[in-house]
Write a protein that binds this DNA or RNA. Structure first.
Lengths: 239, 239
DNA sequence: TGTGCCGCTTGATCTAGATCAAAGGATGGT
DNA sequence: ACCATCCTTTGATCTAGATCAAGCGGCACA
């Protein structure tokens, strides 16, 4: 029962890939899709390790990382609600996926999804558009990593997260970015995404705080006090 | 005449996107596809500027860049022979394309290509796979930009170019990377791709040279003397 | 009520790579 | 043949951010 109409009550329904499926296909989907939960910090899927399922993120944030034996690690992507996890047409992904926060996934068998992709032009078209957007986003981040200062990097990251969480509906769709929310990344993770060290991130957050752009509240909450100032500090160049 | 069977004599035929088209479609393609030439350094298509055609690179190397009004510039991608240029389903690309070397393109109307993409599952499947590979490559480069040292960056770039040019058939398909070829990027461009300054690139090339990994010949030629050493210096982590 | 751990901040110092400066080669035009 | 320009190298110095080193506060566990 609950399972029959899971799609119709799904929070990310209008934003996720499933939008590319005709109504009747969604019904069939219901019968095979299943949910998974991961606590913050848990390993989800591994670099160079077979993964025989794909998923849509229902809630939470996932980080994609690459690391070297010598300990160097870099976050190469973040997945927010409605984003897709997995690497079709290739058994293994070159990156590791880990839950940055508690995560809820809606999963599908690899072969089932690849099958759907073949048979449903609307779906594969949508998937292609998403993937093209991801290339663009990755390239924007390359600019950040290669050319921005530490302060710009941190400001850009806060803006990125604010925008993405807003899009995910975390603040009920207000027309301006969420100003107050629990930041989904630890200082260490911020550093790993920005190509910085944790101490530098900490100092730059202090700088943004004294500039009045943001405020740091209890827990991991970050409050955007002055959006325009934050955008200025990000060099108006985030995403 | 020449145009009729242009596809059948095309150098990148087996590697380019066109492979995703059935034979008879390739014939139709011939009638509308046309070639373009750009000299080294020429502007090809602009950030946020309408581009109503797509292209396959026949020869040469294209750089995709993003730059800020304050002069900071970053190369966010390189296109080699058989690669695809353009951004379907969105009028404008957020990046600028420029010829790094002399470039030959095989072009197609935007609407014609998007039409083909809709109608030809094989083509859109292939295009999707290519795009997924591009995301992976961009993320690998994010690791390089965020975590590698200057020396590792330069070594990685030389390896990347060697491999891509080999794949493009520049050395007739030898089973090891090309050891001798004209490097397609200037020092400035290398720096722009690596998130470094030109002086640093120059010094690191000197370092690789004194380590015996490479040799710099007249013109822009780079000779890979010791592939294993070069790979070691790239932290075995290039692409 | 301790105590040990973890994530974060803050300060002091160090260094890889940036910046500043100058001086070769190449190459093309006259 | 000469000059101008551009690309590259090399040297000297500077600095943003890394590294080293405490210290602090919250939280879990005994």
């Amino acid at each position: 029962m609950r399972k029959r109409n899971a799609c119709t009550i799904c929070a990310v329904r209008q934003k996720a890939l499933c939008r590319g499926l005709p109504e009747d296909q969604q019904g069939r989907l219901n019968r095979t899709a299943y949910h998974r939960h991961y606590d913050a910090g848990r390993f989800i899927s591994g670099a160079d390790q077979r993964q025989d399922w794909f998923a849509t993120v229902l809630s939470g944030v996932i980080k994609l990382t690459k690391s070297l034996p010598d300990g160097r690690q870099q976050i190469v992507g973040l997945l927010f609600p409605a984003d897709f996890l997995g690497r079709p047409f290739r058994g293994r992904s070159p990156f590791t996926a880990e839950a940055a926060t508690a995560v809820e996934l809606c999963c599908l068998d690899r072969c089932h999804f690849e099958d759907l992709l073949q048979k449903t032009p609307g779906l594969s078209q949508l998937f292609l558009e998403r993937t093209l957007d991801e290339v663009d986003a990755a390239r924007e981040w390359m600019f950040l990593l290669g050319r921005k200062t530490a302060e710009e990097k941190v400001a850009s990251l806060i803006l990125l997260v604010a925008r993405r969480l807003r899009r995910a509906g975390a603040d009920g769709g207000a027309e301006r970015p969420a100003v107050h929310w629990d930041f989904p990344l630890s200082r260490t993770e911020m550093a790993e995404y920005l190509g910085l060290r944790i101490e530098t991130v900490s100092r730059q957050i202090r700088a943004l705080r004294s500039a009045g752009a943001i405020e740091v509240a209890e827990g991991r909450a970050i409050i955007v006090r002055d959006l325009a100032a934050l955008e200025r500090m990000a060099q108006k160049e985030c995403e």
